[in-house]
Design a protein around this nucleic acid. Structure first.
Lengths: 196, 196
DNA sequence: GTGGACGTACTAACCGGTCAGTCAAAAGAC
DNA sequence: GTCTTTTGACTGACCGGTTAGTACGTCCAC
């Protein structure tokens, strides 16, 4: 399971990614236009097209940019004990992104576009597989060490992803970040009942 | 907990709702236009505006139309035994909507618009509360009858909703309806571990 | 002959994307 | 070390196309 490709971004491109980030938070995905990105960028729309021919291309690059950060954050979770490692991983997947609630909203919008947009679908798919693999690894490792019950690690990882995705969706749709904390509790219960 | 208001639809309005339904399935929410609805309706765009002044108004009415059907489907679940009642309820919430996968996709798009669109948010919120109340009722009832453990019915209902929403989101985003079946299994495990 | 149910034709606002041309800095020529 | 040329990074104007919504005329049932 390879982590998503580490793409190179020039300084100007990184600035554009930040501008896209801001524009997304302010206007959401549906109302995201090249003009609004250009405004955040502080340049003309043609300047945006200078770096990326099409809007789709730019947004695909933006997802690469964003998902890289995410991968880095969950890769940083390292502990020896499988129980605490799994717990920290779930914490990371279900943290309240306080100031970035708006980005979570936009990200759900983009996820909902996956069926119509192959570059999006590819990237979300790859990110999902990577995260699921991380969970499955921790579980398998815990089983080998005798810390966990001998369960179907793949299924348990998938269940945890379902709980994570559910909590995130609910947090966005109902505008209630506490859905994340509730989801964290549900995940804990599921882990306790299944693995311990 | 009142069920969502039963709104009246004239024959022409019902036809328009069906046209909206078809247009949504064909083009998704983002690419849904009055023109496309009018095409499905078989009339001009002015004919659509004759019944609904704005697009927002029409779509709010459409959600009423759609969520009414959904409420009817889960209200139809009636059994005496709490275990089978809960099981049937979860089945209803996690069925594979075979030919209507496209509608599930569009519905997630609309749910993702809730933060920007109050009429949407209101309706999804109300629908969620209603469904959660149905789950909580079955659980509370089961506890009273001694069929379930004495748990926090509200929290368990919320957890099940999280699993349901997660399974639906995953089914759409990854274009994989089997995520629903997997979610159904996770829900069963959660019920078994928590209530029995 | 009046009122509801449209169709035709339109507008104003945007949209993504293109184009020709500008300008400073880098690269090369001598 | 200067002059010339090229290049990278842009701007402003503009294009064709699309959108929600409107104005107004018309047809038809009663």
């Amino acid at each position: 399971m390879a982590a998503p490709s580490n793409r190179e971004f020039s300084e100007a491109e990184a600035e554009l990614m930040q501008a896209t980030y801001s524009a997304l938070r302010e206007h959401g995905y549906v109302d995201l236009t090249i003009k609004r990105i250009a405004d955040e960028y502080g340049k003309s729309t043609a300047a945006v097209h200078y770096y990326y021919d099409t809007k789709e291309e730019l947004l695909a690059a933006f997802l690469d940019y964003l998902l890289e950060e995410f991968v880095a954050s969950i890769r940083a979770v390292e502990t020896t004990a499988p129980e605490t490692r799994l717990s920290l991983l779930l914490d990371e997947l279900l943290v309240d992104p306080q100031p970035n609630q708006a980005l979570s909203v936009a990200l759900l919008e983009m996820r909902a576009q996956a069926p119509y947009n192959e570059p999006f679908r590819e990237r979300f798919q790859q990110n999902d597989e990577y995260t699921r693999f991380m969970l499955k690894s921790v579980i398998s490792h815990g089983i080998d060490e005798g810390a966990f019950e001998a369960v179907d690690a793949d299924h348990v990882a998938r269940s945890l992803m379902t709980i994570v995705d559910g909590a995130r969706t609910r947090s966005v749709v109902h505008g209630d970040p506490s859905a994340l904390a509730a989801g964290r509790r549900t995940a804990s219960e599921y882990v306790d009942a299944t693995l311990l």
